[in-house]
Design a protein around this nucleic acid. Structure first.
Lengths: 361, 361
DNA sequence: TTGAAAGCGCTACCAA
DNA sequence: TTGGTAGCGCTTTCAA
């Protein structure tokens, strides 16, 4: 690599080779050892093993040499020699969704605490793609694979995925699923069904009787569970949601907006409240309502799910179901690190928060 | 690890050892070769090299063996043998901030397209921590290191970081900085200064004369540039921002909220508009105003920066400066992959969007 | 078209 | 407390 076009006044030493293609070789442990005048084994002990049984003088020499050569251990080489990496893999479906990014925040925090590096992959496409990603990730031999928001349900590839994960686990890896509680792996199980059911009760308690529902594709377990919980909750009061007031849409702000717009276009009828399976969707829907000339909280009440930060930044503040997403991430990582023999399920409970978007009727 | 709780009827061979700790060995290329009855070299050629010069029959055998053994190439081993990985490292400061997660979205998308795996590290603490993270990342020998939102400015560790990055680059790695345009590396340079300056002009154009500013620590380059651009823009009209109406706070929703609360507590005086250095902060401030009984857009106008999605979900919709964050991510990755000799700077222009949070006066 | 074998950078065992 | 050395799983010459 050349270095044209930069008047580099910084501390950086100049290029050594004129040759454009030639890169300086990274210093290896061998180099360090030679420079320090000790064996490679000793250098290894100083830099990565237990410093204990090396003479002080040699420790110093090695350290000095390493600093001088700007040595960085080759993690792949270490991984291969040690037979284990310090990597954890995280699979999400969309980083820019607050739901996933909050979980990811928790995961990375816990990983850092455990000295692990997180590798993140995004599945935005098909289940096939997810399978492929898991295969690739497996190739990194991470300590753990954490799968969140997977559309594992009811697809042909489901069995293949499960087998892939199982093979990984048999080889000593640790698998954690977030919100997928019927598979034989560690699972952080968010109480989507229960929370939604509670939400239904609470809303009925406020005086609502006629509902519309905005949900995502049924293959998305999270959406389905929330939907079912809500519908079951209403059924306790002999309330049904009319088919024409159920909107299936993309699991995103855009999807929520589209659903809201559609609902507004079609006419609210006597619908009093629309509940979306996520805050992100609910917020999108609220904006769609406003754009259609409806005032959320007055003309139509709105409720969401997750209680993401922005829920209190919109007007009116959004009624939701609190899910401690960051903690979900922490939990997932902990589960991943506990080498439990049994597949454990850690339940995460959820909690209804009533706000101004659903005023008492 | 045990395997309780699942009746595994799959093709997976049974445990070899009764020992709970013992894991089944992952199949290696050697195993595949043996099973297929060919040499390891041939197996390698089929599975990873050019399939071309291997007899059809052997190709089939190897493929079959690989499938049967559920073989996954050991990426670390490949990395070490090939002398190169297919990894890219991304350093952000906070995943759950829409700013970073949007950029991260772009980066991962571009990485995927290029067949790279993204490793993500979060720097939420000190610059020292950042240096340490970069060192670790370097150990993975990624093809590229993308640094975004780094608080590289004016710290003691700055030189150390630069040297670290330079050493990495000398060894053939590719470094990309987002929004740090005075360092000798590839840079995606968001026009923070210009955008802020335009914003100032536009707001003055709307009739505003008295401003408050909510900003983050001056060491954060992004915040500083936006601030300076804004102040310079006002100066064109001989408008100054009083010192007591400048609030320094955390670069987050929380920080924005705190600043807004403080401003409300202190009293607006004759302040007409508060501009925050990011939408996230602006939105936090808006909520603080509301909580203090002020109506944003009526009692106090508000403007932000970035034009993140939620900007149009709040009421009133937030005036902002559009930054194509996803594209910034894409760009960064492209820059990383182009093995350009010269350190290139790709400018990203920004654009003022006036919305209801800053009504004409 | 194939296989033997020499590494890649590192760790860890064993003997000194 | 040290150094020699045998791998770790893979790629890639080089001969056959």
């Amino acid at each position: 690599m050349h270095n044209l076009g930069m008047e580099d006044g910084s501390a950086a030493p100049p290029r050594r080779h004129g040759d454009a293609a030639s890169a300086e070789r990274q210093a290896t442990l061998h180099d360090v050892a030679r420079t320090a005048g000790v064996s490679q084994a000793t250098a290894s002990r100083v830099l990565n093993g237990s410093t204990r049984n090396v003479r002080q003088e040699n420790v110093a020499r090695v350290l000095a040499a390493a600093a001088e050569l700007n040595y960085t251990p080759h993690l792949s080489a270490q991984a291969i020699a040690r037979g284990a990496t310090n990597t954890a893999a995280l699979v999400v479906s969309g980083v820019d969704d607050p739901y996933f990014s909050s979980i990811a925040g928790g995961v990375t925090q816990a990983a850092e605490a455990a000295g692990l590096i997180v590798t993140m992959a995004v599945v935005d496409r098909s289940p096939e793609r997810e399978l492929q990603i898991v295969r690739t990730l497996r190739g990194m031999r991470p300590r753990a694979i954490i799968l969140t928001g997977s559309r594992i349900d009811g697809t042909d590839t489901r069995d293949a995925l499960v087998e892939e994960l199982d093979a990984y686990r048999r080889a000593g890896g640790s698998v954690v699923l977030v919100s997928q509680y019927d598979l034989p792996f560690h699972t952080v199980s968010i109480d989507n069904y229960g929370g939604a059911r509670q939400l239904a009760r609470a809303l009925v308690g406020l005086g609502y009787r006629r509902f519309a529902v905005v949900r995502a594709h049924a293959a998305l377990r999270t959406s389905r569970d929330r939907c079912e919980g809500f519908v079951d909750g209403l059924r306790e009061f002999n309330i049904d949601v009319e088919e024409r007031f159920v909107f299936e849409s993309e699991f995103s702000r855009r999807g929520g907006y589209a659903a809201g717009r559609e609902l507004a276009r079609q006419g609210l009828g006597d619908t009093e409240l629309v509940v979306a399976v996520s805050d992100v969707m609910a917020i999108g829907a609220m904006t769609a309502f406003r754009d259609a000339g409806l005032v959320p909280g007055r003309d139509i009440a709105v409720a969401g799910f997750d209680d993401i930060g922005p829920a209190v930044d919109v007007v009116p503040e959004l009624t939701s179901v609190t899910v401690p997403l960051r903690q979900v991430g922490l939990c997932a990582m902990e589960l991943a690190l506990s080498d439990d023999d049994v597949s454990r399920v850690v339940p995460i409970s959820t909690n209804v928060v009533l706000r101004d978007s659903t005023p008492r009727r």
